[in-house]
Write a protein that binds this DNA or RNA. Structure first.
Length: 494
RNA sequence: GCCCUCAUCGUCUAGUGGCUAGGACACCGCUCUUUCAAGGCGGUAACGGGGGUUCAAUUCCCCCUGAGGGCGCCA
């Protein structure tokens, strides 16, 4: 009745040791969708406790990629919030406080083992066919032993005492109840010898203190979960609800990695994928609607998303389907919008200048209208449409041998040139009329007439509507290109 | 080695104790067309194996197999 509604708070907690990749983006997306669906809060937290590998550069790159995808957060490093700081590297005192607390309560202890000793111990256990977990030999050191180790200059870690008996069960929203035997877990480290917290510890402290009540993350964290639950219990914190998402795999069925080619989000941005196409595709990796709907508007996806409909089995990332979806969104885009997105590609290819005048913009828009159906990825536009912008485009060699080198072509192009010159209005319709009547007069099939003109104007055998593209080129340029082709035929291909 | 998870077309998936097992990508035809796309129409293609339970299992249970993940002073 008077139950206070608990607001849903979820987070995405990447470590800045690399670029945002497909898997991370999918995790971020599901958290974001869940938060937006329930009108809860989506929090970004940077887990930069690995001093060796973390870098500020990756923090910026992560933020940039998430923003680009349109996944906005309510609290985080750049936007602030009431539960900060949102960098783990700035929360050192908090972790120390709780580690000490556990120490005082006898739930944790100093461990003086060196990495080398631990490595050796692990190898031995594996040789003996035992589970490679920490033996717990520092669990019950006498004060004298402690002093001895310290006088040797050993920097201790703090380990958590895992109960030797009992079972810890994870009630997962996607997988149901999953049980783990505590005795197989082994005492794990809370604070490294350099004073930094480990993932399991910092994660639990921060999630608790930040009020995270749903933990949505990759399947690869499922086996960490019992350790974390044990920590929540030792600290008297409320255990959050868990949802472990199925993994995304590469085409060979192994964990998605660099080996599978492009995995970073920035790659897809640069290649010319639309952010929403990527989001829409990622949403379908592990989640579906009862009718297997494929395309979603933003609000529609938020409204329809639910954890109940997340599947259990891992999914293979299929670049082909992503490409199809991108083409789908490109076709649905307004040409004017596409022009904005395409300008940087044209500029980089040296096809247009840094600043363009209204008439150039108008021309580009018309070109986009003609090429839109063929575009799957923005970067392809350059190859598809460069001839519109290049006066001296090259002729496709196939096109030359198959089309241009035919006997009748020079006289045909000559005749066309004459007729085009005489035309009072130069538009697609009249051009087509002219070309069709010419084919009739000469008793040549339309393709025998159209193809040479296409190659003369574009250098290619395929492309958008011939007459439409000629109209965009304009009368003067069309004539010039015919002349250029004629000249080429005379000088080079005799 | 030990622990955990998963299993429907090539891929993403829907689905049910009885269905012609549905959709999407990819692929292959046909169609439209000057070409390439896009579009329209159609097609090939799946319940991993073995035991149960049941009148009936792709669906429920067990085993096997296969695949993935974890077993760090990485996250």
């Amino acid at each position: 009745m008077n139950e206070i509604k608990e607001w849903i708070r979820v987070r995405f907690a990447p470590s800045p040791t690399g670029q945002l990749h497909i898997g991370g983006a999918r995790t971020a997306l599901f958290n974001w969708l869940f938060a937006r669906h329930h009108r809860g809060k989506f929090i970004l937290r940077i887990e930069d406790t690995d001093v060796e590998r973390s870098s500020e550069h990756f923090v910026r790159s992560l933020i940039k990629d998430l923003r680009w995808l349109g996944l906005d957060w309510d609290e985080g490093p750049d936007v602030g919030g009431d539960y900060g700081p949102y960098f783990q590297s700035q929360r050192g005192d908090i972790y120390k406080y709780y580690a000490l607390k556990l120490l005082k309560e006898g739930k944790a202890y100093f461990c003086y083992c060196t990495p080398e000793e631990l490595e050796e111990e692990k190898r031995r256990m594996q040789r003996e066919g035992k589970p490679p977990k920490y033996s717990g030999r520092c669990r019950n050191l006498t004060p004298r032993q402690r002093r001895m180790f310290e006088s040797e200059g050993r920097e201790p870690t703090i380990r958590f005492k895992v109960p030797e008996k009992g079972i810890t069960s994870v009630k997962d929203l996607i997988r149901g109840e999953v049980c783990f035997e505590n005795r197989l877990l082994g005492d794990f480290i809370l604070l490294k010898s350099n004073g930094m917290p480990t993932f399991n510890f910092a994660n639990v402290i921060d999630d608790s203190l930040m009020g995270i009540n749903y933990v949505i993350r990759g399947d690869d964290h499922l086996s960490n979960t019992p350790r974390q639950i044990l920590l929540y219990q030792a600290l008297n914190f409320k255990v959050p609800k868990y949802a472990h998402l199925p993994m995304i795999l590469g085409s060979d069925g192994t964990k998605l990695s660099k080996r599978h080619g492009a995995t970073s989000i920035s790659y897809y941005r640069e290649k010319g994928y639309l952010p929403w196409a990527l989001v829409n595709y990622l949403a379908l990796l592990g989640w579906s609607t009862p009718d297997s709907q494929q395309l979603f508007e933003r609000e529609e996806l938020i409204q329809k998303f639910s954890l109940e409909r997340v599947g259990k089995s891992s999914a293979i990332f299929d670049p082909k389907k992503l490409e199809w979806m991108n083409g789908e969104y490109i076709r649905r885009s307004k040409p004017e919008r596409l022009v904005e997105l395409l300008l940087p590609y044209l500029e980089r290819a040296g096809l247009i200048g840094r600043r363009i005048d209204p008439s150039t913009r108008e021309k580009i828009t018309r070109v986009v209208e003609l090429e839109q159906d063929r575009l799957k990825v923005l970067s392809e536009f350059v190859d598809l449409a460069d001839f519109f912008f290049k006066r001296n485009f090259t002729y496709d060699s196939q096109a030359v041998t198959k089309i241009l080198k035919r006997q009748y072509v020079p006289s045909l192009l000559g005749e066309m040139r004459k007729r085009i010159e005489r035309m009072s209005s130069f538009d697609a319709e009249s051009l087509e009329k002219m070309a069709r009547s010419l084919s009739e007069e000469l008793s040549l099939s339309t393709s025998k007439v159209f193809h040479p003109l296409r190659v003369a104007l574009t250098g290619k055998m395929k492309g958008p509507g011939l007459f439409e593209l000629a109209e965009v080129l304009g009368k003067e340029e069309t004539l010039r290109r015919i002349d250029r082709t004629l000249k080429k035929l005379k000088t080079e291909y005799v």
